[in-house]
Design a binder for these strands. Structure first.
Lengths: 211, 211
DNA sequence: GCCTTTATCTTTACACTGTCAGGATTGGTG
DNA sequence: CACCAATCCTGACAGTGTAAAGATAAAGGC
């Protein structure tokens, strides 16, 4: 039963999932700032007020979409990690590349996750997904023997590259062929790795949770 | 004749500047995604269609605001550079700190510059201001003897920190007192510096003003 | 089986938004 | 002084988010 099957008048069956799918497509096509709730409803073949019942308002829909987005975000990193060597350093590089993969592959969704003020981070699902993403990074850095300051360094580097590339900046890197670009990104990511600055120093950043 | 002089019915005198000022305030209060052109007009005490004559449409207004924003962005860096030592390394650190100052001081404007799809980058003024900002960074890196890859590294690190902090992430760093936070940021920025690859060197920011 | 309850979706309505067309007002120029 | 061009306003239209109330289908009790 497709979305535009005229038979289903009421009780779509799985409207919530269908709306999330339509919302993601709308987000990719129109961007975060031109996102329209009624347009999402139209794409799902449903009345314009139908989403309200499942998500409350637009913010609720985007929040749910972001929670799902964080899982895809982690999946993108996991995909890289699976094809990388098992040692912690290689795993950390792979995670960084997955981070960038996600940002370049779904720039609008990426910006929703990290640069939108239309998300409700008190939402349980979003909060869980978001902290899960951070903990994954922190654990990986710990595996390499790095401190939380190292985690911040790795995060900032990966995020900076991802955000700039997703927004069309860093053109010198953007125009490189896939192979060469990946080499540059790897060299940039490894610059901030814990092993690069030898010597155990006190971690100036307290180990509280961060999201 | 001030801006809120009720006498001025027509011919505001400097409506373009007044609208940009109102737009910046609206941006700071409501964020990029809830930005409203009519609200800007109301704040400037003018009819809802008045902005059209000066900026065309909303995109035009935001584009002009972004062009001005890039100048403020450079000014924030210059303010730091002026109070820093003259050597290229210290200047580069200062620029990075100014980058972060700007992002944290005006997060909405920062996001407009680097993460909005409502800007017209074919606009001459915006293009000029934007490339000027990039060239400033590239020149500074060249002063330290760095390559273009080094410039990308410095940019990504500064931008990653700025964007994450502006969006409320990296809370462990965010909650630190001004003094300690700046120390951490400096140590993170210097990690990716060209000279960092040449082994232990003197702290490039040892004599930086710490106000 | 039938009737009631509940979840789901629709219809209707309202205030708000961006943008366009046309009209009003003013400062400057001949 | 009369005209012109720049500037700003009024009015209109389609589109948006959200709330209220109604319609329909599925589920559960008898």
């Amino acid at each position: 039963m497709t979305a535009d099957d005229p038979r289903r008048a009421y009780h779509h069956g799985d409207l919530r999932a269908a709306l999330l799918l339509a919302a993601e497509a709308e987000l990719a096509e129109r961007g975060v700032e031109a996102f329209s709730l009624r347009q999402v409803a139209r794409r799902a073949g449903v009345s314009h007020a139908a989403p309200a019942h499942h998500f409350g308002d637009t913010r609720g829909l985007l929040t749910a979409l972001a929670a799902e987005g964080f899982h895809r975000f982690l999946a993108a990193q996991a995909a890289r990690e699976m094809r990388a060597a098992a040692d912690p350093q290689a795993q950390l590089v792979a995670a960084g590349l997955g981070y960038i993969d996600f940002a370049m592959g779904r720039p609008a969704l990426f910006r929703l996750l990290f640069g939108s003020d239309r998300l409700d981070f008190t939402d349980a699902a979003l909060d869980a997904a978001s902290t899960e993403a951070y903990l994954h990074l922190r654990d990986q850095v710990q595996m390499t023997g790095g401190t939380e300051t190292d985690a911040a360094a790795v995060w900032a580097m990966a995020h900076g590259l991802a955000d700039l590339l997703a927004n069309g900046r860093l053109k010198p890197i953007l125009v490189l062929p896939q192979e060469a670009r990946e080499g540059v990104l790897i060299s940039l990511l490894t610059r901030v790795f814990p092993a690069a600055n030898l010597g155990p120093t006190a971690d100036p950043v307290s180990d509280t949770d961060q999201t």
